[in-house]
Design a protein around this nucleic acid. Structure first.
Lengths: 231, 231
DNA sequence: ACTTATTTTAAACGTTTGTTTCAATAAAAA
DNA sequence: TTTTTATTGAAACAAACGTTTAAAATAAGT
């Protein structure tokens, strides 16, 4: 039983041991690639315990995600309210809005932040592996917080149409997840110019990039002449 | 044998039948979720034919990807050169650069464009499922074209440092793949404001968003005061 | 102490997976 | 034609998967 790397696991009950180990393995190897036998062996519990406590492998995944997503979204809401309170007229700047949205996202997983970003990579993986599952997850955990932040963005950038806000919000979210999924790539594609492990730098660059994207929407589309070239 | 939906498949040899069917199934269901038996049954060939012609399942994937990526990157290069030729001083605008980079990306898969974006979703999936595999793919197929476009961007935005260019380029690429992976999400999260099937709209919004991100990098980071709040 | 409910255990279930084997067939070279 | 090479075919391989079962062990309630 290789549980030495986290000796605190011995003081947990079976359910907690499974949750702890599953989260780590799901993040490291993905959902499909992680077998229940791998989880239960590493957690030092019986194979059948997963189905007993969580019903199925997918039920386990649901619980693992819930335990991270709920506190993350609570943090987001608190940070946004705090920024609103600190502002003069109740209107929060785009930078503050996305700082409130991003920091709990990257702080997920560990108190000092999940510097490996494994959990976020898993989230991105699942959204491509199991779209139906992700839809349920959205309805349950993300719909509310999204409406909150979309409203805040609408106040910060009143000239944006609802359609444009949703496009940009979609882009920002896709970029957040995509940049975590693709983070490995940055290691060997930036020729050493960028450090993928510099999470603080990543956050700052992301905020800058995203806010610029939101502010670019003033001009109507017809102003931009496309080449219209076809490959 | 269900090959009716593409009756042209009967005029192909075994190798081509496998490639054709594998590409479609990989795109629809992902690499791991597609079994060789599914492919060979649908293609109407023997199970062992895959290992005979491609060595392994991964060899088949490599060939499927190669057949799409190589023409895509050729298109990109041609479009960039054309834009450079049409420009006055040889310096291409950011919009033209990313149009040359984006259009062949979304035109992948079918003559009229893979409107379902299944191939691109698969590409994003694989980059999260098999990082090691993706690294080899980058060295073989993407390194060269990236250097070409990074150089063009450097000419269009000379004030950008190499570090900033690589960050932004990484963001743009992550956004491209991420927005395809997450495209399903847009359906139910935009409250009907956005149409995820409007590829032309997606391209235009993407170009606008990305170019704004590139132009935002003038101001040094210290000019931007972060709240420094911790959740 | 006795009964009931909860949890853990070992074993097996039925499928599915990618790959290999080797004989049969088709195509090409001599 | 004969010989060699390339391709196809049916079958089996060994390994891995999530799930279920039913008995044993522990805990809780009375």
């Amino acid at each position: 039983m290789n549980i030495d790397r986290n000796s605190a696991i011995v003081n947990m009950n079976t359910r907690e041991k499974i949750l702890e180990t599953a989260e780590r393995l799901f993040a490291e190897r993905g959902f499909e690639a992680t077998s229940l036998r791998h989880i239960t062996t590493e957690a030092g519990v019986n194979l059948a315990a997963v189905n007993y406590h969580f019903g199925s492998k997918e039920g386990l995944l649901r619980e693992v995600l819930k335990n991270r997503i709920v506190p993350m979204n609570e943090s987001r809401q608190i940070l946004l309210e705090k920024s609103r309170f600190q502002s003069q007229d109740g209107v929060v700047s785009l930078e503050r809005i996305y700082e409130a949205f991003l920091r709990p996202f990257f702080n997920i997983g560990a108190p000092g932040g999940d510097s490996n970003g494994l959990f976020l990579r898993m989230l991105g993986r699942i959204s491509s592996e199991k779209p139906g599952f992700m839809k349920g997850l959205y309805q349950e955990h993300f719909k509310e917080i999204q409406e909150l932040f979309v409203a805040a963005i609408g106040e910060a950038q009143p000239e944006l149409s609802r359609e444009e806000i949703h496009w940009k919000f979609h882009f920002a979210l896709s970029l957040m997840l995509g940049s975590m999924i693709q983070r490995q790539r940055l290691k060997f594609s930036s020729n050493g110019y960028c450090d993928p492990d510099d999470i603080e730098g990543l956050i700052q660059h992301l905020i800058e990039f995203i806010c610029a994207g939101f502010r670019s929407a003033g001009q109507p589309k017809s102003n931009f002449k496309f080449a219209g070239i076809q490959p």
